[in-house]
Design a protein around this nucleic acid. Structure first.
Length: 271
DNA sequence: CTTTACGCCTGACGGC
DNA sequence: TGCCGTCAGGCGTAAA
């Protein structure tokens, strides 16, 4: 599933195809996603061109004159731009047919994703209201991580994956950022120094921006808007590398479950 | 308030 | 070959 770099890659890819285009038809083949797809979605979309294609955290936000179409890709969702609505395959749940004859298609085998309609300010929507800062915003830095972590005992990996602390960091990039910062993923968040959180904030930004540059990480089913994979998997240093040699010290990379999620780290470089 | 566990779903993979 | 258990990029919710 897409973390922030994958969602941002999708956003950049679909944006030119959607901006100033109007939806002519909505096809919902399966409305049982994480929440039901609104039955009146077509009436919200038809006749009003998209005026912005934005991202907040891992949510895509498509704006028109009436409100916002909110899309989340869950664990296995993909969005593609197609020539037409032909060639329907398994798990092609939602199509938006556009007035340039293109089709924006959501495919999501596990159906943890969501397609919702938001009228009013999306920042006030319950799903978005309590999100932390964007990792590339000025509000996100070591001072924020340090302040928010005081007195908290949970593992730092779970702390930085909490979307109320900072958005966009999922299981892959949490492991990668902690390796780059030299911090053990199971270390209690409240027992990490300000200086180390400064390094972690930098590492989070670096790993996310490098992944965006590469067009996302290709693992299992992530592909961009044309169905092509991203290339950041070639730059992963610890994720999925259990049993392999650490690129920095040669120690054996380990994998342990922390907070119900597989966590990869170098036991020598990360403390 | 914090922290943990679980459930939602399907598909791929490894072991037997 | 088939069956079964495990695991997978997220996140809301319930419970302690």
């Amino acid at each position: 599933m897409p973390e922030l770099p994958e969602v941002e890659t999708i956003r950049r890819g679909i944006s030119p195809w959607l901006l100033n285009r109007t939806v002519t038809q909505v096809i919902v083949r399966q409305d049982r996603l994480r929440w039901p797809v609104p039955p009146d979605l077509e009436s919200c979309l038809i006749g009003r061109p998209f005026t912005a294609v934005m991202r907040r955290a891992k949510y895509l936000l498509l704006k028109n004159a009436a409100g916002w179409l909110l899309i989340h890709l869950g664990m296995s969702g993909t969005l593609r731009i197609l020539e037409s609505t032909a060639g329907v395959t398994l798990h092609d749940h939602v199509d938006l047919l556009l007035d340039n004859r293109r089709c924006l298609r959501l495919n999501d085998p596990r159906r943890f994703g969501a397609v919702l309609w938001v009228d009013g300010s999306p920042e006030e929507h319950p799903l978005l209201a309590h999100l932390g800062p964007e990792p590339f915003s000025e509000a996100f830095d070591g001072a924020l991580l340090y302040a928010r972590s005081r007195g908290r005992a949970l593992a730092v990996k779970n702390f930085i994956m909490d979307q109320r602390i900072v958005v966009g960091v999922g299981n892959i990039y949490a492991s990668e950022a902690l390796f780059r910062a030299g911090i053990h993923p199971a270390r209690p968040a409240g027992r990490i120094s300000r200086a180390r959180y400064d390094a972690l904030a930098v590492a989070v930004r670096e790993v996310l921006s490098a992944a965006i540059e590469a067009g996302g990480t290709s693992l299992r089913d992530f592909t961009n808007e044309h169905g092509r994979p991203g290339y950041f998997s070639q730059q992963l240093l610890v994720y999925g590398k259990k049993g392999q040699a650490c690129v920095q010290c040669g120690a054996v990379i380990r994998c342990e479950v922390i907070g119900q999620r597989s966590s990869y780290f170098c036991p020598h470089c990360q403390r």
